[in-house]
Computed example of a mutant assay.
Amino acid sequence: MDRESGSTRKDMPGRLLRLLSLLQSRREWSGAELAERLDVSGRTLRRDIDRLRALDYPVESTTGTAGGYRLVSGRNLPPLMLDDEEAIAVAFGLITAAGGSVVGIEDSSVRALAKLERVLPPRLRPRLSALGGTTVAVPAREARRVDPVLLAVLASSCRDHQLLTFDYLDRAGEASARHVEPHHLVTIEGRWYLIAYDPGRSDWRNFRVDRITDARPALARFHPRPLPAPDPAAYLTRSFAAATYRHSARLEVALGADQVRSRLFAHAPGRIEPHGPDACIVHLSAESAELVTQYVAAITALDADCTLVDVSEEVGSRLRRLRGRLP
């Protein structure tokens, strides 16, 4: 029979909200999965999809063995369905966005937070008030700011496994065109990095987002490769440690590697290798001689025996001048 039963029509508003929440929770659903989750027939599901489309939700039908549906971008921004924890997480992100490295995000964050606050259920307002009253964002120094539109393009390409083409300027100032399989976006100390597999070089690469221009997602998709690390942050940290830059220093420290890491004010530009339970070797490397000098000074101030084993010429010169200025 083609008509919906009275109970099915009565449950329709709540069912539409559940359907919308499911469509927003992952990229694509088969029709059979959605019908099973909502406990309705395929015919009722198709009617509900049409109702969402009439409300300006851009639900696209997909082809394949069973067929399915996905929520795509449209001309307008329809309402989003957020649970309690997601709403608080979004609010926290908006509160702290002023301290980030994304261009123009401060005013937009304030406007978005005001809209979110107006519609939050009363049970969540005390948590939001606590966040707003006790959270302060300090902007990261020396972090180049990036375009939020570019970040959105890179993030969606990572999520949807779309091949990505862009122009890139490396640290030596050389420009190149890149065609990559984007894997993950990572932010560390105020800078954004794209981790991607570069088929042309048959290897993984990291790209600083502030050096990327003209990013263009392709229609073609790829099957994501396993990242050669436990997680994206670990991979990025390893890559930094393995990189070789113009200025360097190597120190032997009579402290365990974990102790040195925990006592430094920020992530060291290099790697810290354990050398027994109560000793480690610190390899520092960066394009900035000043930065390497600062970390050498910080490590020698850790109240532990420390030996400077090797140092590049300019860093050594800076350290000698620093020692001469100290009483």
Rank of each mutant, 00 (worst) to 15 (best):
D214A: 13
A215Y: 05
R216P: 07
R216Q: 12
R216N: 11
P217F: 04
A218I: 00
L219A: 09
A220K: 09
A220S: 13
A220Y: 03
A220I: 01
R221A: 08
R221S: 14
P224Q: 06
P224A: 01
P224V: 03
P224I: 00
R225S: 14
R225L: 15
P226C: 02
L227K: 05
L227Y: 06
L227A: 12
P228V: 06
P228T: 15
A229S: 15
A229I: 02
P230C: 04
P230W: 10
D231R: 05
P232C: 05
P232S: 11
A233I: 08
A233W: 08
A234W: 01
A234S: 15
A234R: 14
A234G: 13
Y235D: 05
Y235M: 14
L236S: 10
L236R: 10
L236V: 02
L236Y: 09
T237M: 12
T237E: 13
T237N: 11
R238V: 04
R238A: 10
R238W: 06
S239C: 07
S239G: 02
S239R: 07
S239D: 04
S239M: 08
F240S: 04
F240Y: 05
A241D: 03
A241N: 01
A242N: 09
A242C: 04
A243L: 05
T244H: 13
T244R: 14
T244S: 14
T244V: 14
T244Y: 08
R246D: 14
R246N: 06
S248Q: 10
S248C: 08
A249V: 04
R250G: 07
R250H: 08
E252D: 13
V253H: 01
A254N: 03
A254Y: 00
A257S: 11
D258N: 11
D258Q: 13
Q259V: 14
V260L: 09
S262T: 15
R263D: 03
R263L: 06
R263S: 15
R263Q: 15
R263W: 10
L264S: 02
L264W: 09
L264D: 02
F265I: 08
A266Q: 14
A266I: 07
H267G: 01
H267D: 12
A268K: 03
P269W: 08
G270M: 02
R271Q: 07
I272L: 05
E273Q: 05
P274A: 10
G276K: 04
G276C: 08
P277S: 12
P277D: 14
D278P: 01
D278A: 14
